[in-house]
Design a protein around this nucleic acid. Structure first.
Lengths: 231, 231
DNA sequence: TCAAAAGTGTTCCGCCTACACCCATGA
DNA sequence: TCATGGGTGTAGGCGGAACACTTTTGA
């Protein structure tokens, strides 16, 4: 069988990417969602999405969609899962690859999301969404929890400089669980992956809290010694 | 914009599923691979694969490919990852969803794999494979390790009745690490998810080893109490 | 001076790890 | 009787969890 005839009669499909975009602001985990501009379901709430083009990899398509909807590049993104039911999209048969992204909202604010009718919403504020997008969010949250547990991805959601209180409240949001202040500090500092800065953040207390910075070099050193990040 | 025009001019793509099929035999973890029957790369070693059809979900396509190549149904399968580089398949632009499956080789042997030129090979015996299939296997192994750590999926690779020695050597294969006999027994038995049978397996020792069976009820009970399977 | 968040140590308990000998039995 | 794999218990150490008071300083 020639290559030509082998591939010739195979059905082709629409392939989409949908992005679950997480942010963290005011000690709350948030998601970026938009109102859909096309039929079917025009005006309904939706994740950010787009179709795979011929000249881009699937990962590149996801990065493109993210850039088009937030203006941001070089963002942490990871494949979530493939959603492939025949009737999941009411407009046509579309296979969707879902990605989740972690955004520093402060940096994002410089780029207008208005043109996309995009909004940052807290988890409990999320309205009904089109298709299987709510399931995608549920799956993304689970994956975020699993990944955050053993990989230093939480820092992707924080400003470059952050306080330990901010870091702790981020993990409390991700895990939906209170964390002991002393034990948290002990654990994160014992891994020796943070750089303590001289600066203090005085916006949330009179005393001021030391700022820290995630040190990728130190993290690589941790891994090289066979130890694992865990929080 | 009408629904028709919105979807009309979007490029369509070939979508494949590839299956990384794990088995366990003679205390060795094995993979089922075959020699490709079509060009390009005819005769080269390859994972089991096939193309997504119009009338099936992506998960169903994976199950179909598995059934066509092994004769087995109702097999443990899980999505691995999407492989979407533009040039990953030298014959055409093909997006592949990889799945990994866990097989009880004994049950499989009743179905001839010969017609597919399929072979069970140990990990270190795997030859060069087409496209990005070797990467898929590496990713599948990593995912298998991660999943086996906190989910009782190892039992999918063993006969219904098994000895603790068999179970331990399975995990030694998965983790590529020796496990202490006493500690392993203590841990697995303390979770109370195994049913101890009266029967003994005398094939590997004169004394005979007790057979056990994974008890799904007990496992659900474990989860209900908020505890996690861990091995 | 006081309110509000930052920062700091210790104890206890459970779990993981390391480790060596007897048992049952077919050949 | 002996070789082979099956089966069993304990002691020590480490890490996780629980827990309350002092410090700083702007208002």
């Amino acid at each position: 069988m020639s290559a030509q005839s082998f591939y010739a009669n195979v059905p082709r499909h629409l392939v989409a990417v949908d992005c679950i975009i997480f942010g963290f602001e005011n000690s709350k985990l948030k998601l970026l969602i938009m109102q859909r501009k096309v039929d079917p379901m025009q005006g309904e709430w939706s994740l950010m999405g787009g179709f795979l083009q011929d000249n881009e990899s699937v990962d590149e398509a996801a990065a493109r969609v993210l850039k088009q909807t937030t203006g941001l590049e070089d963002i942490y993104m990871d494949q979530l899962s493939c959603y492939g039911d025949v009737t999941r999209d009411s407009g046509a048969r579309v296979i969707s690859m879902a990605y989740y992204a972690l955004i520093r909202i402060r940096e994002h604010e410089q780029h207008p999301t208005q043109q996309f009718s995009a909004h940052w919403l807290e988890l409990h504020q999320i309205p009904d969404l089109i298709f299987d997008h709510r399931q995608m969010i549920a799956d993304a949250l689970k994956k975020l929890r699993d990944n955050a547990h053993f990989h230093p991805i939480g820092f992707e959601l924080l400003p470059e400089k952050f306080t330990l209180s901010q870091l702790r409240s981020l993990y409390e949001e991700i895990y939906q669980k209170e964390l002991d202040k002393r034990n948290f500090r002990k654990k994160i500092l014992s891994m020796n992956v943070l750089e303590k800065l001289e600066e203090k953040d005085k916006t949330t207390s009179k005393k001021g809290a030391h700022l820290y910075r995630f040190d990728k070099q130190k993290y690589e050193e941790l891994k090289r010694r066979g130890l694992v990040f865990e929080i």
